[in-house]
Amino acid sequence: MIQTHAADGIVELQLARAPVNALNPQLCDELVAAIRTAVDQGAQGLILSGNTKVFSAGLDVPYLLSLGDDRDAVMAAWQSFFAAALALAQCPVPVVAAIGGHAPAGGCVLALCCDYRVMARSEDTAKPFRIGLNETQVGLVVPVGILRLMQRVVGVYRAERLVVAGEMVPAERAERIGLVDELVDAEDVVSRAREWLASLLALPQPVMLQTRAIARADVVAALQPENIQLSRFVDAWGDPATQSALRALMARLQK
């Protein structure tokens, strides 16, 4: 589920779970393993990419709903996701998110855990690619740690407005408010991510990496258990109102 492309010390990890890179436990576990392997084999920087329409559609909601009342299985699935987010956050080398399409919910979380975000412009200006934390639209409370990731890049008040409304932000606005760092044509997303990494890797490495670790300590802290409170989150997931909202969402998507 992860395709690896390596060149000049930079490794691209491409999410490859058709059709929309929905994050089930297998994909999350493979991402953690791919990050570890790339670093162990000497990667100096990583690119996390998806496909040309969707970076990642977030958690695999049909899979999670199929687990029914099996709380342990639901808990394990969410643990796999947050482990993948943490692996990106605490990766010892820089990671760029090459966002070639939509990035809702969990897809946005993974992007926020990266050092830098390059997003694609949609060829159809009437249908821009969007990114955001839309959890409230399906009855989920955003964990404190995930809110902090959003606050870190767009500011406290703007994060409040976006997260409370569950807003999916068009790419052009996402760039203006700092939710993504650059907006480029779709065919240039990965190459631009590579260029940005190359410029960073041209710096004296020990100094750059130590400074980066200091600057990103808050990203790692945001994903610690006390800031996610996974047990409480899973309880909210099982709430009948949340389940009803999720099933209604699935019905709309199937249409």
Score class of each variant (00 low, 15 high):
Trp78Arg: 07
Val163Leu: 04
Val189Tyr: 04
Ala6Ser: 14
Ser191Arg: 12
Val39Lys: 02
Glu187Val: 06
Ala87Arg: 06
Leu46Phe: 04
Ala57Cys: 10
Leu246Arg: 03
Arg176Trp: 13
Gly42Lys: 11
Val184Lys: 10
Ile214Cys: 15
Thr125Pro: 10
Leu183Val: 02
Arg194Val: 08
Lys127Arg: 15
Ala193Gly: 13
Met75Glu: 12
Gln210Met: 15
Asn227Asp: 08
Trp78Gly: 02
Leu147Gln: 05
Pro25Asn: 07
Arg212Glu: 05
Cys114Leu: 10
Ala6Gln: 14
Ala174Tyr: 12
Tyr116Arg: 15
Cys91Glu: 03
Ile131Asn: 02
Met168Glu: 05
Asp218Asn: 14
Cys113His: 07
Ser66Lys: 05
Leu133Cys: 04
Gln229Pro: 10
Ile35Leu: 04
Leu200Thr: 12
Gln41Asn: 14
Asp239Lys: 09
Pro128Glu: 01
Ala245Gly: 04
Ala7Asp: 15
Ala111Ile: 08
Gly178Arg: 01
Met150Phe: 12
Ser56Arg: 00
Pro62Met: 00
Glu12Ile: 09
Pro204Met: 14
Glu226Tyr: 15
Ala245Thr: 02
Arg121Ala: 08
Gln44Tyr: 12
Glu160Leu: 14
Gln229Val: 13
Lys127Val: 11
Ala217Gly: 12
Leu197Lys: 11
Gln210Leu: 14
Leu249His: 00
Ile131Met: 04
Ile35Trp: 01
Leu162Ile: 14
Gly45Ser: 10
Val180Thr: 04
Leu64Thr: 00
Ser199Thr: 14
Ala98Ser: 06
Val11Gln: 06
Pro225Gly: 02
Lys53Gln: 09
Cys28Glu: 06
Ala165Pro: 03
Val219Gly: 05
Ala83Phe: 07
Ile177Met: 03
Val180Trp: 13
Arg161Pro: 07
Gly106Cys: 06
Phe81Tyr: 09
Met208Arg: 14
Thr37Met: 08
Leu223Phe: 15
Val142Thr: 12
Arg232Tyr: 15
Leu86Trp: 11
Arg232Trp: 15
Phe129His: 01
Ile47Gly: 05
Ala217Thr: 11
Asn24Gln: 13
Leu13Val: 04
Pro104Gly: 01
Gln224Met: 14
Gly101Glu: 00
